[in-house]
Every structure is written in structure tokens, then in C-alpha cells.
Design a binder for these strands. Structure first.
Length: 940
DNA sequence: ACTGCTGCGTAC
DNA sequence: GACGTACGCAGCAGTG
């Protein structure tokens, strides 16, 4: 063994092509040519060159031509989809780039890349040269030994013999056996049916080798044993196919690996290439245009950033929506100065700048996406576009006392120095979804105050139907391709925490976020100010409610987990009984949770009539269908009952206890404030806006939403809010009159439609009227109404006509709204919130009709959302002003739920509905109904 | 194992 | 195609 063995670096180019193509977004250069795979490939080769200095290297690609495997097994790689067009167009450019970077390319006709790599690695080993193989393909793990290592450049994973053992459960020399057993679906090489990684490892561990497994096949029980015996004849062929050859004839061109030397970059070619494909950052590096020193320092050794967008990237905005400002195509790249703050002096310098009182963009990096669990890893700040700092406080390793550790200031020290500014309501702050950052600071005992702007909410108010993520906003409005979190931390199983990222790379990413947030504000806020209604919604509804939402989320709600567990047990018991009954009715067991299997039983075996089909053409088994079939057969009813119980158990009684935060003992939902296009909130993790209420069974879940001792739950909901808004907007005299007189609105509607006195309305008639009233809000057609009521379409049309005759203002409103939507491209709420409808003119028939229904619904749903948001702001303001102990804990679209000390109960029950009804003066009275109790069910 | 889609069902 | 806005479950197919 030599003191310094030489290294051969082999890149499995073919496997990386696909991975780079799929992993990266659809990048294109100025000519519209796809460049994502090219970019990924160059990036990867540069990184490899840096990480693994090698005396010899090559990039290996598959070549044309049949291989020995095709001859042995004609079905080899059959069914594999052909290469996507956009990738195929990048192959030639990739070869060109690889050559320009100085890498030898090896392609041998009739030999797969894997076999080329195997052969070269073996030759190298024979001559005492180490080999590093860079690949994303697990099959090559069979090549690993003392001299050959595998590296997955995209995940950073390095596999030596111990690594292979750890990853696969078998050593490298058993990988071939392992692959033979499980097969390779991608290459269309079958293994033993029903044998996956687990079974393969188990067998190989027990018997030692594939040969031994085959020899002992008779002793293996069960279906898998049966399958193994059936496959015995095939397995030798499978082994041959999955074995990488190490003795190929590579021809004269690559007679041995000594010829595989890096010839160095061809700068002229690279310059031409980078400019042709629009890789501006790399171009700048090559042509020596220096970057600002701090920026360059931050970028050192961390790979280049993605190329800048050049115009082809911008999705074309629907004609009717506001045009995004697009930067001039030849605008010079913005210069950036990003600083990593790791000393007391540097922190003080930033504190001095903060003291000047300008608007500051704030962003936090953390350990978790869960806002209540996230721990602070670093803070970034920006006061001037292009300039930002990153203050790391939690990178690598546990906390220790003092003001400095791991080359960073400690979290306690930084937060104490920043606390005065962070908590000062007079120091204006800006963020992108700053509600999240407020939670993070709160997790460390710091109350973020002075939140005046949020770019996510600006985007939402300007165009609620578009994306509001920072990366897409930056691209759309600034023409900047930002570093994504995924690029920094990876994704899926290989994702690592931000605290693991080195400070230079972390600064690049985090400081950019603060910088970009500030720049986005400067791009969007003037647009908001240009439309008074939008500025009003932003300033007086969205920004203040954001602060309230953060408090509500933090308050959380107390859950009686014990009670839910009991319910789960009962539900599970009854499900078992239903399951058995269903098996008996069907004559065989099947998965009751699988619509597909239900369909096979009902419509395949039992030949029941197909009532309707799903979107994909399969026979539907939804509630409506089962309901109908249940009239004539017993099984559908069992399935219906089972489904109802399964839903309750899986979604609610099992799930909610798992969502209890261990630190607070309560459930903390997150309200999405920029999710629903109409202005409504959305609740996630868990969704507390769809807790059952309609059935007796479901309502029991609400009994588990409780108050702690000495407190009660109070709930107040707006009565008929959307119909009231319809009356207000339409100005229909008849409808306004009914509300003014405080009538039961469905009864009044029934009296009008059926032409009877209020007192003479039957419950059936009232039910019809209720369905019609709801249908109107949703823009329902005669067809829909007929389906819903189970009546003829003609009859439904008759009722609708009758309705519009009695409420002509409503008919006028519907038509006016469609008209306005077509002319303006948007509709508005009473408070000026806009909903853009790109399909209202441009869309195809069905899409345009859907847009028309959305146009009719949005002003009502959106105004209701505006009203309850104003209520939440007013209620929170009142509670804090009067220093009450009452907490707001939930919002469910037209309902507010509070947790109230008994001493404040009477006050809250009186004042809460007053506040809710007083937030706006409409042409109809607003009515809120309030209730209280030991749990949500009692209060509702 | 992970991802994304389908089918279904819950809320207002 | 036919009723608007959401979230999330289990199953399942495709992919690594």
C-alpha cells in the first residue's frame, strides 16, 4: 500500500441526467431551451471536483447499441418510458459542457455505463489506485470494497463497505444476491414476488448467500416460500442481469484508466457556453467581474447559486390580472453585501443601525416548521436592499453558557441585546409570513411587536389566487432566483436541519431571505397603495388580524384526550362488528377502506347496478351511491356505517390527541392567512374548522373540546351571514325586509316560493327553501338543485324562476356580478377585497362557468370573511384594553370560540355579540348568537 | 420508503 | 359539466 494512493473519480453520468432533470425546476434560457439538467450536471461536477481531488477522472454515459443483457433477456428495460423530450434536448449541451469543464467522457457502444464503471474500477484496484464512484444508482453498491467507494453527490451520502452494510443490511459482496431476490422494476428484471428489502435481508442473513437461500428453498414457509420455489429457475438469470460486469472490452479509446486525465477548463468554450445558456453567475466568475467581498466570502466553497431568470421563466399572467412588474431583461444583477454576525462588536454595529428607526426586514431560521415547536437557529435583518446580516445563534451542538460558542454569539446573549428593539412597538418590522417568526421569538420568551408589514399578505391582497411563497414572488416580481430551502437542506429522508448548515452557506440563504423580503415590500406596497380598497383591506384587516391569529394559535385549545381515547375504542369495536358483517354479506373478506375493492365486490361480484362513475371512470362508491343501493341491498348500508365510523376515528378521535403539544398540553392549530382565495382562513395541523357537528355521533367529538377548571367555553356565531350579505349587496327589497323584520329566512323564502302564508309553511317546504337559499350562494344551477332535492330538473327550474320573481334584486345582482367579473376580471367584497378570475373570459366552457359561480359566491363568502376578521380584531382589542383573562381560541368562518373565566362569563356573553354585530353597518342587521358551556358542544 | 394522485368525507 | 371555499384521511400506483 502506497503512502498516498492515487484516485480515480468516475461519474455515472447517465444516472445523474435523470436525477438532475427531475430534481430541478423547469429552468430555461433566453431562447426557451430547457437548461435544468445542464445546470444540475455542471453544478454536480464542480462540486465533485472540489470535494474529491483525483489524479484520474471521467464522466461515463450510456451509449447506443444493444448490450449483452438485451441478448440474454429481450424484455430487459422494456416498459421503460422513453427519455422526456426536454431532457433529450439537453444531452448534447451536457456533453459539450462536460468537455469544456475538462472532464474526459467515456461512452462505449454496446456497454452500459455501469459495466464501464465496474471495469475501470477493477483495473484501478489492480494497480493500487482508489476509485470513487459518484452515482445515484443503488445497484453500484456491489462494487464497493476497500478500494472502491460510492458517493451520492446529491445527498452527500458516502458508502464504504460498512456504509453499504448499514444502508442495505447486507455487505457489498451480497448486493448482487439481494438485488436478484427483490428484482429491479426499473429495468424490468423481476425478482421473487412479494419479496422486498426486508425479506431479502432476512434470508441472506439467515442463509448467507443466494445460493444457500436457493438450496434451502424447501424449508421456507408461506406464500413467499412458494414464490421462491417457483422462481428458482429464474434467479440465476436475474443474478446475471443485475451483476455489473468488470471485464468488459472498452476498446482502444479507453484502453486503460491512465488516459483519463482532467485536461482543465477551456475558458473560452465555457464563456461561450455559459452565455448561450444564461448561467450569469458562473459567467461573472469566469470573466473576473468581482463580486462584493462579503458576498464572495459567504459564497466561498458553497457552490454557485442558480442562474438568474431571464424572462422565459415568467409565467404569463392571465390577461385580466394585474401585470407584475418585470425587471428590464438587461438589468444588471443586484449587488449584495451579506454579513455573518459572530462578534459582539459586529452585533453592536447592527444594533446602532436598528436604533435609527427605519423599517427592518426580519427573518428567522429554525429547527422546525411547526411554529410552536421551532427553536431559533439564527436571525437575519435587512434595512437596505442588497444589504443584510445573518446572526447565527444555534448552529451545531447543544447550548452552553456564556456569550460565545461554536464561533457564534449565544442565543441568550443575542436575544437579550435585541430584545429592546424586537419588543418595541414603535420600531417598525417587516417579514414574509411574520406570524411564524413571532411564534419563534415567543418560544424563547420574546414578544415581537411593531409588526407593520408582511409581504405574504401584500401578495395575497394584491392577487389572492396566485402563489405567495417568497421564492416565487422573488422570481415573478424581482426576477431573482433565490436559494431555496431545499437546495440548502435537502428534502425527504435526507433533509438535514438548518442548524447543521455551515455559517457561510447559511448566511447566503438567510441573509438573502431578509434582503429579498425588503425588496419585495418595495415592489408590492406601492401597488397596494395605488388601490384604496386594497390598502384598506391590507392595513385594517389583514395586518391586524395576523397579530390576533398569532395569539389565538398560541392560546390553543384544551382537549380531553382521555375522552377521545374512549370514543376511539368504542368506534373501533363497532367497526370490527361491521367489518365482520360486511365480510359475511360479501361472502369474503376485503378492505373496507378501499373504494377500489368495494367497487369490485359490489359491481364486479355482486353485479349491483352502477349508479354513477368517478372522474376517472371507475364506478363510484360514495355516500350518495351507497345510500341508493342500500334501498335494495344490505351490504351498502354496512359500508356506509363503517365509513362514517372510520372517518370519525382516523381523522378525529385518533388524531387530535396526537396533536397535543407536550409543552402546553393543548392543541395549537395554524391558521393559513393566504390560502383561501376568497379571504377565508384555513386551519391546519390540525384542521379545527371541520370538526363534525351535523350528526349526533360526530358532535360527541366536540364534547372533548373543553375549558380548564374555573373556565368555560363561549361560542358566538353570525346568523345567516352570507344571506344577509346577499341582501345587502343586491339591495333586494323583499329580502332586506325579511331580515329587517327578523323573520326565519328559510320560512320566509318558502312562503314566497310556494305562495303560502308564513304560518302555513310545511317543514318540507322550509327544507326546500333552505336548499335553494344555500344553492343561490354557491351559484347552483337547476341541474344541481334537482340533484340535491331529488326532484325533476323542470321542477327545480320552476322553483328558481319563482325565487327570482319574488326576489328580483337578487336576480339582478347575479347578472350584474357576472357582467362585472367579465369586464373587470375580478369581483370585490364590501370592504374592497378583490378576487381575480382568470378563467372568466379566457377559460373553456366548463371553466368559465365555474369562474362565474366563483364570481357569484366570492363577494358573499369574502365579505363574511372580512366581517369576522374585523370581529376578531375588535374582540382582541377589547380583551386587552380591559385586561380581561378571556382568550380567543378558535375561528370557524362564521363562529368565534373563546375560553372564559367564570368571573367574566356574563360580561363576555353580552359584549361579544355586540362587538361582532357592530363591526360594520350594512343594510341588514347583523345577528350573532352566543352560547356557553363546559365544552364546545354545550356552547354551540 | 417516499411522493403524488384518487376517492371520499368533514366543516362553513 | 352541472354547488362555492377549504383540509386530510386511506388506498394505491409510480419511483427510487
Amino acid at each position: 500500500m502506497s503512502d498516498s494512493p492515487k484516485t480515480l473519480l468516475l461519474v455515472d453520468g447517465s444516472s445523474y441526467l435523470y436525477r438532475a432533470y427531475h430534481a430541478l425546476p423547469d429552468l430555461r434560457n433566453g431562447e426557451g431551451l430547457p437548461t435544468g439538467a445542464i445546470y444540475g450536471m455542471i453544478n454536480m461536477l464542480r462540486k465533485l471536483r472540489n470535494d474529491y481531488p483525483a489524479e484520474y477522472s471521467a464522466c461515463v454515459f450510456d451509449a447506443k447499441g444493444k448490450t449483452f443483457r438485451d441478448d440474454l433477456y429481450p424484455a430487459y428495460k422494456e416498459h421503460r418510458p422513453s427519455m422526456p423530450e426536454d431532457l433529450a434536448r439537453q444531452i448534447e449541451p451536457i456533453h459539450e459542457a462536460v468537455r469544456a469543464l475538462g472532464w474526459p467522457i467515456v461512452m462505449v457502444e454496446g456497454v452500459e455505463a455501469d459495466d464501464v464503471i465496474g471495469t475501470l474500477a477493477r483495473e484501478a484496484s489492480a494497480q493500487g489506485v482508489r476509485t470513487v464512484v459518484s452515482t445515484g444508482d443503488k445497484d453500484l453498491a456491489q462494487l464497493v470494497n476497500g478500494e472502491v467507494t460510492l458517493v451520492n453527490t446529491m445527498s452527500g451520502e458516502v458508502l464504504d463497505p460498512a456504509g453499504v452494510q448499514a444502508k442495505f443490511g447486507v455487505p457489498p459482496e451480497r448486493i448482487v444476491d439481494y438485488l436478484s431476490l427483490i428484482g429491479d422494476a426499473v429495468d424490468n428484471v423481476p425478482g421473487v414476488p412479494k419479496v422486498g428489502p426486508k425479506t431479502a435481508v432476512k434470508w441472506l442473513t439467515e442463509h448467507g448467500s443466494l445460493d444457500a437461500v436457493m438450496a434451502g428453498a424447501d424449508g421456507i414457509k408461506g406464500v413467499v416460500g412458494e414464490n421462491l420455489r417457483k422462481t428458482l429457475d429464474w434467479l440465476p438469470m436475474a443474478r446475471t442481469l443485475v451483476t455489473v460486469k468488470t471485464d468488459c472490452d472498452l476498446g482502444a479509446a479507453v484502453s486503460d484508466f491512465h488516459s483519463l486525465k482532467d485536461v482543465g477548463e477551456d475558458k473560452d468554450k465555457l464563456v461561450a457556453f455559459f452565455s448561450r445558456y444564461g448561467f450569469k453567475t458562473w459567467l461573472r466568475e469566469l470573466t473576473g467581474e468581482s463580486l462584493p467581498s462579503l458576498r464572495a466570502q459567504a459564497a466561498k466553497g458553497a457552490g454557485a447559486r442558480a442562474p438568474q431568470a431571464q424572462g422565459g421563466l415568467f409565467d404569463s399572467a392571465p390577461a385580466a390580472t394585474p401585470a407584475d412588474p418585470v425587471p428590464a431583461p438587461d438589468a444588471p444583477p443586484a449587488e449584495t453585501r451579506y454579513e455573518t454576525v459572530t462578534t459582539e462588536a459586529a452585533l453592536q454595529a447592527w444594533l446602532d443601525r436598528l436604533a435609527e428607526g427605519a423599517l427592518v426586514a426580519v427573518d428567522t431560521e429554525t429547527t422546525s416548521l411547526d411554529p410552536m415547536q421551532a427553536r431559533l437557529v439564527g436571525i437575519s435583518l435587512s434595512l437596505v436592499p442588497g444589504e443584510a446580516c445573518y446572526i447565527p445563534v444555534g448552529h451545531c451542538g447543544p447550548d452552553v453558557a456564556g456569550i460565545e460558542q461554536h464561533g457564534q454569539l449565544t442565543r441568550e446573549f443575542v436575544l437579550e441585546r435585541l430584545r429592546g428593539w424586537l419588543e418595541d412597538p414603535a420600531r417598525p418590522k417587516l417579514g414574509q409570513n411574520i406570524k411564524y417568526d413571532a411564534h419563534v421569538f415567543a418560544n424563547h420568551g420574546v414578544t415581537l411587536r411593531g409588526i407593520v408589514h408582511d409581504t405574504m399578505l401584500q401578495s395575497y391582497v394584491l392577487a389572492s389566487h396566485r402563489n405567495h411563497g417568497m421564492d416565487s414572488l422573488a422570481e415573478r416580481l424581482l426576477g431573482i432566483k433565490t436559494i431555496t430551502y431545499e437546495e440548502v437542506c435537502g428534502k425527504g429522508a435526507s433533509q438535514i436541519g438548518f442548524d447543521q448548515i455551515d455559517l457561510a452557506r447559511a448566511t447566503e440563504y438567510a441573509a438573502e431571505d431578509a434582503d429579498v423580503t425588503l425588496r419585495l415590500h418595495r415592489a408590492m406596497f406601492p401597488q397596494l397603495q395605488a388601490v384604496p380598497g386594497l390598502e384598506h383591506v391590507y392595513r385594517h384587516i389583514e395586518m391586524p388580524v395576523s397579530v390576533v391569529l398569532q395569539k389565538i394559535e398560541r392560546n390553543g385549545v384544551l382537549i380531553d384526550a382521555q375522552r377521545l381515547a374512549e370514543q376511539s375504542a368504542q368506534l373501533g369495536q363497532r367497526m370490527l362488528e361491521l367489518e365482520q358483517a360486511a365480510y359475511d354479506a360479501a361472502g369474503q373478506p376485503f378492505n373496507l377502506g378501499s373504494p377500489k375493492q368495494i367497487g369490485e365486490i359490489l359491481f364486479g361480484q355482486m353485479k349491483l347496478p352502477v349508479v354513477k362513475k368517478t372522474a376517472s371512470g371507475a364506478p363510484s362508491t360514495d355516500e350518495e351511491v351507497l345510500q341508493k343501493l342500500a334501498e335494495d341491498y344490505p351490504l351498502p348500508k354496512l359500508l356506509l356505517d363503517y365509513r362514517g365510523l372510520a372517518k370519525l376515528k382516523s381523522t378525529y378521535t385518533d388524531k387530535l390527541p396526537k396533536m397535543v403539544n407536550p409543552a402546553t398540553g393543548r392543541v395549537h392549530t395554524s391558521y393559513g392567512q393566504a390560502t383561501a382565495v376568497t379571504g377565508r382562513l384555513a386551519s391546519t395541523d390540525p384542521n379545527l374548522q371541520n370538526i363534525p357537528v351535523r350528526t349526533e355521533e360526530g358532535r360527541r367529538i366536540r364534547e372533548a373540546f373543553i375549558a380548564p377548571p374555573g373556565r368555560v367555553i363561549v361560542s358566538a356565531d353570525y346568523s345567516q351571514i352570507e344571506l344577509r350579505i346577499m341582501a345587502h349587496i343586491s339591495g333586494d327589497e323583499n329580502l332586506l325586509g325579511a331580515f329587517a323584520r327578523g323573520e326565519d329566512i328559510h320560512r320566509a323564502t318558502a312562503a314566497e316560493i310556494f305562495g303560502v302564508e308564513r304560518e302555513a309553511v310545511s317543514s318540507e317546504q322550509r327544507r326546500y327553501a333552505k336548499v335553494i337559499n344555500f344553492g343561490l350562494i354557491y351559484g347552483m344551477s337547476a341541474f344541481g338543485l334537482a340533484g340535491n332535492l331529488g326532484i325533476e330538473r323542470e321542477a327545480a327550474k320552476h322553483y328558481i324562476d319563482r325565487y327570482f320573481t319574488r326576489y328580483p334584486g337578487v336576480a339582478r345582482y347575479m347578472e350584474d356580478t357576472r357582467q362585472a367579473a367579465r369586464e373587470q376580471g375580478y369581483v370585490e367584497t364590501v370592504f374592497g377585497r378583490r378576487l381575480w378570475l382568470p378563467d372568466i373570459n379566457g377559460g373553456s366552457g366548463p371553466r368559465r362557468q365555474a369562474a362565474e359561480r366563483a364570481a357569484i359566491n366570492a363577494p358573499m363568502q369574502g365579505t363574511a370573511a372580512d366581517l369576522i376578521k374585523l370581529s376578531m380584531i375588535a374582540v382582541q382589542d377589547w380583551l386587552e384594553r380591559d385586561r380581561l383573562q378571556t382568550l380567543q381560541i378558535m375561528q370557524v368562518h362564521d363562529e368565534l370560540v373563546l375560553e372564559v373565566p367564570e368571573a367574566e362569563l356574563e360580561l363576555v356573553k353580552r359584549r361579544l355579540p355586540e362587538l361582532m354585530c357592530g363591526v360594520a353597518e350594512l343594510r341588514v342587521p347583523l345577528v350573532a348568537e352566543v352560547g356557553s358551556g363546559a365544552n364546545w358542544e354545550e356552547a354551540h
